[in-house]
């Protein structure tokens, strides 16, 4: 049940961005990824989520993972509950009122998502994670455009409803979520220019 990454290198297009990355996350633990913009946090999370192949090394993801990026995948023409019910059905779960309460969107549930503010929309996007009930979360800057109260609410959700149940979370963020979690600075793992030949190089 442990998420293990060994000697992983990840590439963005033809360029290797991170290499020699090894870490493991126990159940009930979160890992916070730190590093300046462009260091490769998103690329690492996309690789872990299976959206792009690893360039080298191995990773073992214990269970079905949920990925949340900057973009929420929220449809602005649908209502909040229609959006969440869709993801619930895709992941074989049900949309319960508890999730709406947790993310403080219960009174918005019949609103068309396009009429919500950026922060409210973001909360709908995050509520998707509550709906999916995945054991492993890969979160890419989950708190963008959230106010301080919502950040706290989201941190509480992560601690009490995800990690407390033995879930795993890998989170890239620039702010302090208030979680009791180890931090991993990615800066030492930045690939030196010109190292590692890319699989696409022959075509470029």
């Amino acid at each position: 049940m442990t998420l293990t990454v060994t000697n992983l290198s990840v590439a963005r297009g033809p360029v290797t961005v991170l290499q020699g990355l090894s870490f493991s996350v126990e159940p009930g633990q979160a890992l916070i990824l730190r590093g300046p913009n462009g260091v490769g946090k998103t690329t690492l999370l996309r690789t872990l989520a299976g959206l792009q192949p690893a360039h080298g090394g191995t990773m073992s993801i214990p269970d079905a993972a949920a990925y949340a990026s900057h973009a929420d995948g929220v449809k602005s023409a649908l209502t909040v509950s229609e959006n969440l019910a869709f993801w619930a059905e895709v992941h074989g779960t049900r949309l319960s009122n508890d999730v709406l309460e947790t993310f403080d969107i219960a009174d918005l549930s019949e609103r068309i998502t396009g009429t919500l503010s950026a922060g409210q929309k973001r909360r709908v996007g995050l509520a998707r994670l509550g709906v999916m009930d995945a054991k492993v979360l890969f979160l890419d800057e989950p708190t963008v455009s959230l106010d301080a109260f919502s950040v706290k609410m989201f941190a509480t959700f992560l601690r009490d409803q995800h990690l407390a149940k033995g879930g795993i979370a890998v989170i890239a963020t620039h702010i302090d979520l208030g979680l009791d979690a180890p931090e991993l600075d990615l800066t030492p793992f930045v690939a030196k220019p010109g190292t590692g030949d890319s699989p696409d190089e022959a075509f470029l």
Partner: peptide, 16 residues
Amino acid sequence: LDWEDGALALLATSPL
């Protein structure tokens, strides 16, 4: 449309 709002990446990581 699904590409622009990120839903396509989420669908790709879903069980479908």
